[in-house]
Design a protein around this nucleic acid. Structure first.
Ligand SMILES: [Zn+2]
Ligand SMILES: [Zn+2]
Ligand SMILES: [Zn+2]
Ligand SMILES: [Zn+2]
Lengths: 141, 141
DNA sequence: CTTGAACCTCTACCTACTGTAGCTTGTAAG
DNA sequence: CTTACAAGCTACAGTAGGTAGAGGTTCAAG
């Protein structure tokens, strides 16, 4: 039986985060001591490790919830699992594409600045006028 | 004189977002009609366009606040402006590096899956155990 | 003068946590 | 057995950067 602090250390999670996962139903309510403190078993450790690892790979908590549900049906086809992972891959690729456009534009405007006064700063000029941009950075980041 | 709706349309911003920027002090409080409706001038249009463009390039609102302050002192050296832009470039590069590691790992685990049952799904196996990862995806995304 | 789109304020909500205040429990040493 | 204190508990607030809705008012065209 593990205390919440031990579970936190073993999984590299903050104690509050564990309680938060319980609150949103991502971790089951654990047993309690007489005094009301949480006590965890190995299955909780596995589940939390899964969640943290999936988070590190960028999955949202909603996606993780789906993955955990699917993981409970070992006999089913893994098509849904792969679909979720594929969607995640696509999202990552989209973000990379967008960030790469930003990187290019930032590099370019920094390269063009002659490091003189604010009045002549090329960086500010570009920020003032998207027409001075070569990149098409649609919405958000 | 522009209404908030017109200003929103001209800059591709939501009306609520404009009021939000005012609330956090990023846009000055505009004049009002007798009835209390906001009316904007061209300087507001320029300032908001600047903010939105900088946001599209990934600058935080705090960075934008600094840039706007600097922009008000045309005679000063632009070193600070360039430092902010440079910091932004670095952050973008870090994020790209991290996302690229995620992309590789997601691609790899999807490539290794034999698309059979959930019990054998390689994607889930990797998620369960970071040792099965080739990538070192430290903290967060 | 009437209608209705656009405006107003205020509040709550989103993700994925993190931090704080004020109190209680568990455990090890003396 | 008592005491000290780390670690636990709940509840609430806050982060970035907005977005959505309720319920009420104003502006401008017809
Ligand atoms: Zn410059
Ligand atoms: Zn641009
Ligand atoms: Zn699979
Ligand atoms: Zn891993």
């Amino acid at each position: 039986m593990l205390t919440i602090g031990t579970l936190a250390k073993r999984t590299g999670t903050k104690v509050q985060t564990i309680r938060y996962y319980e609150q949103i139903g991502l971790l089951p309510e654990p047993g309690r001591t007489e005094g009301g403190q949480r006590r965890y078993g190995d299955s909780d450790l596995d589940r939390l490790a899964f969640i943290r690892h999936a988070r590190q790979l960028g999955f949202t908590l909603e996606a993780i919830r789906e993955l955990l549900d699917l993981s409970d049906n070992p006999d089913r086809s893994c098509a849904d699992v792969d679909r979720i992972a594929h969607r995640q891959l696509k999202e990552v690729e989209v973000r990379i594409t967008r960030l790469d456009a930003l990187r290019k534009e930032l590099k370019r405007m920094l390269g063009e600045c002659s490091r003189d006064t604010v009045a002549d700063c090329r960086v500010l000029e570009v920020l003032r006028d998207h027409a001075a941009c070569l990149t098409d950075h649609g919405q958000g980041v």
